[in-house]
């Protein structure tokens, strides 16, 4: 009533096979939960002519653990994942990120695949998935392909998915023996978009950073890994000065903009503060430094 929604042709798929069959035609927009899509349609950011409703695809709602990996059905609702004990235990970063996402009402409808495919630079599920080196399974009627999540995001609201594909599953390797830390910096304490979000996982062996993984949201055109900082630290001694030195290099990994939520300058500062906090805490976790 406040908005005039465009007219469209609507189809509802009852199973995956049917969905992929429809997608074959190439010009269908997928409605997985619709929480982003419907608002986009109201404000004129998207106006699809054809919508394929896949909300009924129960077969896409699952969480399975197998061989050190987690397999998450793309149609899983965010709230289902938040309440899932396996996710909480095996993928704490993802669990923490979802806890901070939107609100209960939205998490009950929104899907994990939807959050990924919407490809907002602020997509909160992305940094954890980047940390875990998750892969997305993109399926079409002619088969499936698997893509590392880092290659899936191309830019703001741009992804590598084609119009006849559907994000069927996310494959997430778990991390054992890692310190894992997540923080979402918003403008209030709940139900808010991130100004900066950061996920960090690291391992220190014999006082040396044996692995460091850093992923950041809202500080680049897409969610990114901070490879420069990671490489600066890997193999280095875990101490305060190494961390401080490495964190300064984050400027090479990110390119924040100034917008209504924060200035680029602030995002730089906050990113560095968050990374230092995470890395210091990691160091402490492994019994090093006094951070």
């Amino acid at each position: 009533m406040y908005y005039k929604l465009p007219e469209f042709e609507y189809k509802r798929a009852e199973n995956l096979h049917q969905a992929l069959d429809v997608l074959k035609e190439g010009d269908w927009k997928i409605l997985a939960g619709g929480t982003d899509l419907i608002l986009d349609m109201k404000i004129g950011r998207q106006s699809p002519k054809k919508i394929l409703d896949i909300t009924r695809l129960g077969e896409l709602r699952y969480v399975r653990a197998y061989n050190g990996k987690m397999f998450i059905g793309g149609g899983s609702r965010l709230q289902e994942l938040l309440e899932n004990a396996l996710v909480k235990e095996k993928l704490p970063l993802l669990s923490s990120a979802i806890y901070e996402m939107a609100s209960w009402q939205i998490r009950n409808v929104a899907t994990i695949a939807g959050n990924i495919c919407n490809a907002s630079p602020a997509a909160d599920s992305a940094p954890p998935l980047l940390i875990y080196d998750a892969k997305v399974k993109l399926s079409s009627s002619s088969g499936s392909r698997t893509l590392p999540i880092s290659e899936f995001f191309l830019g703001p609201r741009k992804t590598a998915i084609s119009s006849y594909e559907l994000l069927e599953e996310i494959e997430v390797p778990t991390l054992d023996g890692y310190f894992q830390w997540y923080y979402k910096l918003g403008r209030r304490h709940a139900f808010t978009l991130s100004v900066v979000s950061a996920a960090v996982a690291l391992k220190i062996e014999n006082g040396i950073f044996s692995d460091v993984r850093i992923a950041l949201g809202s500080v680049a055109p897409k969610p990114v890994r901070a490879y420069t900082v990671e490489n600066e630290l890997k193999g280095k001694e875990a101490n305060v000065s190494e961390i401080e030195r490495a964190v300064e290099k984050v400027a090479e990994d990110i390119s924040p903009i100034s917008d209504v939520r924060a200035s680029a300058e602030y995002r730089f500062k906050a990113t560095k503060a968050l990374l230092k906090e995470a890395l210091f805490k990691g160091m402490k976790y492994f019994g090093g430094g006094s951070g």
Binding site: R187, R188, H189, A190, F191, L193, V260
Partner: peptide
């Protein structure tokens, strides 16, 4: 979303 008023968590 961008005019930010307090929630129950704030």
């Amino acid at each position: 979303t961008d005019y930010v008023i307090p929630t129950s968590m704030d």
